[in-house]
Amino acid sequence: MRFASHRDIARALERALRRAEIPVAFSAGFSPHPKVSYTGAAPTGVASEAEYLELTLAEARDPERVRTGLDEAMPHGIDVVEVLEARGPGLADRLQASEWSVELAGVDPETAAAASRAYLAADGVEVERMTKKGRRRFDTRPAVVRLDVGSGPDGRAPGEDHTTYAILRMVVRHVTPAVRPDDVLNGLRLVADLAPPSSPLMTRLAQGPLDETTGAIADPLTPDRPAAHTTVGTGSEDDRAHDRRVGAPRPPAPVAGARP
C-alpha cells in the first residue's frame, strides 16, 4: 500500500463512501464532486500512520457510525482509526509539521549520527527536485526542526545477522515548497556524503501543531474532542451539513489516506 498514490487513495475513499452509504455532500455546478478535503498527503512510496481528511456530510450522522462504515468498506491495509465532528478551525491551520521515521539498511548508526550533526550545523542545505514546473532548487535546512539517529539491537536490521542499519527520526515543518524526507536524505548526501546502499523505508508517524521549543508535535484533533467543549449548541437548520474529520495522531495502524 505504500506505493499507492494519493489519487489511488482518493478513489478508494470515494468508492468506500458509496459502499458504506454515507451521505457525503457534493459541490454544485455541472461536474459535482464529493466534498472531501485532504491536507498534506504523504508522497508515493511512503508509509503513514497519521493521515487526515475532512468530509462534509449532507445530513447528520453519528461519527462512530461513519468510522465503522468507512473502515469496513476501505481496502485491506487502510484503516479508519477515528472520526470526530469538526468543532474548531480547519485542519490546514493545525497540521504545521510532520514526524518521520527513515530506516537506512546498511548504514552504521554512528555514521548517520555524524552526518546528522553536520546537516544541523550547516547554515543552509540546498537540494534540487523535479516539480510540475520543472527542476527547482531550494534550501531544506530551515524546515528541519529535529534530526535524531537510533538503531535496532546491536545496530542490526531485524531478522538479519550481518546487515547494520540506522533509523533517522526527523521533525519537518510544512513549508512551501514542501520539504520531504527524501529531500533531507539528499541534503545528508551533499553535506556528509551519506549514501545508503539500498532504498530507505520512510514512515510518517505524526502530523499536528508544532511546539517550536521542544520540537514535539501535538494531537491536531484536540479542538474537536468533546472534552475540549463544556457546552454544545443545538445549531441551526443550515448546520445540518456537518464536517467530519478522519484520522488520529500516531495510531497503531494506518488511517484513511495512508500509505502503509
Rank of each mutant, 00 (worst) to 15 (best):
Gly247Phe: 06
Ile9His: 13
Asp224Pro: 01
Phe138Asn: 01
His76Pro: 00
Gly124Cys: 05
Ala166Asn: 00
Thr140Val: 09
Ala256Tyr: 03
Arg94Asp: 04
Arg137Asn: 14
Ala178Thr: 13
Pro196Trp: 12
Arg250Pro: 03
Ala218Thr: 07
His242Ala: 12
Met74His: 05
Glu51Thr: 06
Ser151Lys: 02
Val83Ile: 09
Asp183Phe: 03
Arg129Trp: 15
Val175Ile: 12
Leu55His: 12
Ala112Tyr: 04
Thr131Gln: 14
Pro252Asp: 00
Glu99Asn: 14
Met170Ala: 09
Ala73Arg: 04
Ser199Cys: 09
Leu55Val: 14
Arg67Lys: 08
Glu237Asp: 11
Met74Arg: 04
Leu53Asp: 07
Val246Pro: 05
Asp148Ser: 13
Phe26Gln: 15
Ser37Val: 12
Leu91Phe: 03
Gly40Pro: 02
Leu53Trp: 09
Ala16Trp: 03
Arg15Gln: 08
Arg94Thr: 04
Gly134Trp: 11
Ala228Ile: 01
Leu185Asp: 00
Leu104Arg: 02
Leu190His: 10
Pro200Leu: 14
Arg7Asp: 06
Ala256Cys: 08
His6Tyr: 07
Arg225Pro: 00
Thr213Asn: 15
Ser198Glu: 15
Arg173Gln: 15
Thr140Asp: 00
Tyr119Met: 00
Pro75Met: 07
Val172Trp: 04
Leu13Asn: 01
Ala28Glu: 11
Pro109Gln: 01
Leu147Pro: 07
Leu120Asp: 03
Val144Ser: 09
Val36Lys: 08
Ala4Trp: 12
Ser37Ile: 10
Glu237Val: 10
Pro249Gly: 08
Ala97Asp: 04
Ala73Ser: 11
Pro63Lys: 01
Tyr52Met: 07
Ala241Gln: 11
Gly152Asp: 06
Ala253Val: 10
Pro177Leu: 12
Pro249Gln: 11
Ser27His: 09
Arg146His: 11
Arg136Ile: 15
Ala41Pro: 12
Leu91Tyr: 03
Pro177Cys: 13
